[in-house]
């Protein structure tokens, strides 16, 4: 099966110029791949670089070396060397990302926050909103909250809005950073179901989850990030 994501020898370090230019190594030699319909879970203690790896795959962090191959529109593109325009194109049609926290635009209604990724890709507003509503309902966000901006919601509600926004598109790759962290059992189960559904649709996923039970349920493979520790 062809890999949707293939990292080879990727590395990341930060140079902190405001702290006298000290170099903070994060990870090196990161090599793993993910095929369609598979969920790879990154494991390791906090600070091991799990989120940094996810952010590199999304093009949010620069990659300091090595290669991040992404299958995009039938071709493999190396995200470590891609132009900003290419990264944006990859995000529009290939990679979705559910971040740990929702970064919402002030004033935008929840239903539109969720519908936006579809609208950007040319779905009509009405159809996008309908899908957004279905997902929000499934994630137990009451309909009376839909017209409100999510900034005033509780942490768990915001996270569910974020999940709905991340899951609404039919993108072939999905990155999940702690999608269940602040959810109750019922909603965690919904997220596990959503992930299963994406797998059946052939979506390649990389996830970070701290909850052992959830990890057991969703992981097809576990990649231990401590083996990429860059500390000298």
């Amino acid at each position: 099966m062809t890999a949707m994501i293939e990292l080879s020898d990727a590395q990341k370090s930060f140079v902190m110029h405001l702290q006298g230019g000290i170099e903070l190594p994060v990870v090196r030699g990161v090599s793993f791949h993910v095929v369609s319909g598979e969920c790879v879970v990154l494991s390791g203690p906090s600070g091991a670089g799990k989120s940094s790896i996810l952010k590199m795959i999304f093009g949010n962090y620069r990659c300091g070396g090595g290669r991040i191959g992404i299958r995009h529109q039938g071709k493999v593109i190396d995200l470590a060397k891609a132009e900003p325009r290419q990264v944006l194109s990859v995000r529009r049609s290939t990679i979705g990302y559910v971040s740990q926290f929702l970064r919402a635009v002030p004033r935008v209604a929840t239903i539109d926050v969720v519908a936006e990724p579809l609208i950007v890709n040319g779905t009509s507003r009405a159809e996008a909103r309908e899908k957004a509503g279905a997902l929000l309902r499934r994630l137990n966000i009451p309909e009376r909250l839909w017209p409100l901006p999510p900034s005033t919601f509780s942490g768990g509600e915001q996270q569910r809005v974020n999940i709905a926004r991340g899951f609404i598109s039919d993108l072939p790759i999905l990155l999940l950073d702690e999608p269940t962290a602040s959810l109750d059992a019922a909603n965690r189960a919904v997220v596990v179901e959503l992930i299963e559904q994406k797998k059946r649709q052939g979506v390649a996923m990389v996830a970070i989850v701290h909850d052992d039970e959830i990890r057991q349920e969703i992981a097809d493979r576990i990649v231990d990030v401590t083996s990429f520790a860059a500390a000298a």
Partner: peptide, 16 residues
């Protein structure tokens, strides 16, 4: 560079 990349992972001393 890409806006979120420059703001989340700034490289130059002044940008940091």
């Amino acid at each position: 560079g890409l806006t979120d990349q420059v703001l989340d992972d700034p490289r130059e001393p002044y940008t940091q």
